[in-house]
Write a protein that binds this DNA or RNA. Sequence first.
DNA 1: GTTACTGTAACAAGATCGAGTACAGAAGGA
DNA 2: TCCTTCTGTACTCGATCTTGTTACAGTAAC
Lengths: 140, 140
Amino acid sequence: MTKSSRFVIATHVLALLAHGDGESLTSEWIAGSVNTNAVVIRRILALLARAGLVATQEGAKGGSRLARPAKEINLLAVYRAVEEGDLFASHPQPPNPQCPVGCHIQAALEPTLDAAEEAMAMSLAKTTVADVVRQVRGAT
Amino acid sequence: MTKSSRFVIATHVLALLAHGDGESLTSEWIAGSVNTNAVVIRRILALLARAGLVATQEGAKGGSRLARPAKEINLLAVYRAVEEGDLFASHPQPPNPQCPVGCHIQAALEPTLDAAEEAMAMSLAKTTVADVVRQVRGAT
DNA sequence: GTTACTGTAACAAGATCGAGTACAGAAGGA
DNA sequence: TCCTTCTGTACTCGATCTTGTTACAGTAAC
């Protein structure tokens, strides 16, 4: 099942920043479009800023804008910026080392799980924030 | 963004069933290898049985075994059997419909997210339970 | 100095997961 | 027929994570 919606929200935020032409947007304004609390937006903006995707200015007349052109930000970068941890959770408790299967199951499974996660990542990397904005504009 | 460990546990269970040669295993025995409670295993076995991957016999001398040859069970089938819901969570609250971006962001994002999930699925489909068992045996 | 912002801590509410207990029901064996 | 050995499932509990919220310190423009 699905855990956080941070990735989708983050993409929404970046699309907003890319939609306006380089102007700064305040977290309050963004929260209005996303329909959530400004602090939720600020938390996500902090993650995006740490990854170098947005630049934030504090103080009056402050706000955030893209740190790079929208076409140079792909969704994999966004995903990596806001989501952490592996896609597939492993055993909560380590398997029984006395069992020949339990002993090796994790190592045996790892390449497959890594490949699946990598496949997802490569697919996300194909789309940029600019593509998303184009889609949004086309749908108007 | 880590999902539940059901998928990894389920694969472990199927590998155990494939490892022994068609004998039934009890949930208690399986729980010993996975290092968890038998009820946790029974819950997962119920999901696998509903998907037609294992056959379970109730009562004394009961237990579970594979319903199909191990090489005909790929990990995508296992994933679909035990995990539900989309890989990517969408907005907890629907975005502001008055905002030109918020209004269309979900539809604009959907093809990309679906493609990423599909890419992961196709990658998982390449590996079968028989492959996992072979890996486990090779590591011994 | 005032105003308008961000950054972050703290907290509540809700969901979900793993783990565990309990018990009804099914099936084999004496 | 009764007992033992299993499964299936409902229910509960604690831990963890996420979202939403308030509060407040810090920063920058005017």
